[in-house]
Design a binder for these strands. Structure first.
Lengths: 118, 118
DNA sequence: ACCGTATTACGATGCCTATCGTACGAGTTG
DNA sequence: CAACTCGTACGATAGGCATCGTAATACGGT
């Protein structure tokens, strides 16, 4: 039989559930400079931002890849809203699983940015 | 009976200086399950432990490799003491550079270990 | 001086990752 | 519908990483 295309639209994105988020995967996701920068920007104001809002030194393909790594690690949540795809931090899940972790990473990144000359 | 501490032999191990420690490198170092476990054991009691004290599911060669990654990221300090090489967390440096970060990682790892059934 | 223990260094290997280009799909707007 | 925008999927690739085995090094005790 043909595959049922109606059950799984190409537009819904698989996220790990709360209990499936692994610390090692989160650490790995944050260890890339570009991804860390994305997370830092998402943390400002806690707003949801579209992918195109970010000005990253890589192509669109690579940007998509980095957002996917963050999503599959459980760091961000991605949903389609019309033509744009909005990205938001999964702060609630992360704070529940790893209390204080995200804030300390963000603080450490901010500190280091200052230390290394913005 | 040559326990001369001032001898600068080929056994000197290069450590990054305080100001050279980078958050991304620390995150990457901690993102490997084996290395995270090493750090967790080192954190217990803050003791210095020899490499051979650890019972890891890899060979000696690979163990050496992981310890080197941790040292070069600035997470641990390694010094020779006779025939053994002792390993200790660089807690002072890490706490100064990234306040609260190490503790939150350790707490998150402990929490996850419990959550996943030790 | 030799032997045993602890650890490293080197070379090889296969997997993982970050990167790109191009072609395509889903919406919005003319 | 057609064009345009935003983002995805797929394939390719170069470099990095975790892993191993073996040979070598350093130290302490016999």
């Amino acid at each position: 039989m043909t595959t049922d295309a109606s059950t799984r639209s190409s537009r819904d994105l698989p996220h790990p559930r709360h209990a499936e988020i692994r610390l090692e995967a989160v650490l790995h996701a944050l260890s890339d400079p570009i991804r860390l920068q994305i997370v830092r920007e998402l943390a400002v104001g806690g707003a949801e931002l579209s992918c195109s809002h970010f000005d990253l030194p890589v192509t669109k393909s690579t940007t998509t890849y980095h957002f996917r790594v963050l999503r599959e690690a459980g760091v961000i949540r991605q949903i389609y809203r019309g033509t744009a795809k909005m990205n938001g931090l999964r702060r609630d899940d992360l704070d529940d699983l790893f209390p204080g972790f995200l804030d300390s990473v963000l603080a450490a990144a901010a500190r280091q940015a200052v230390r290394l000359g913005e």
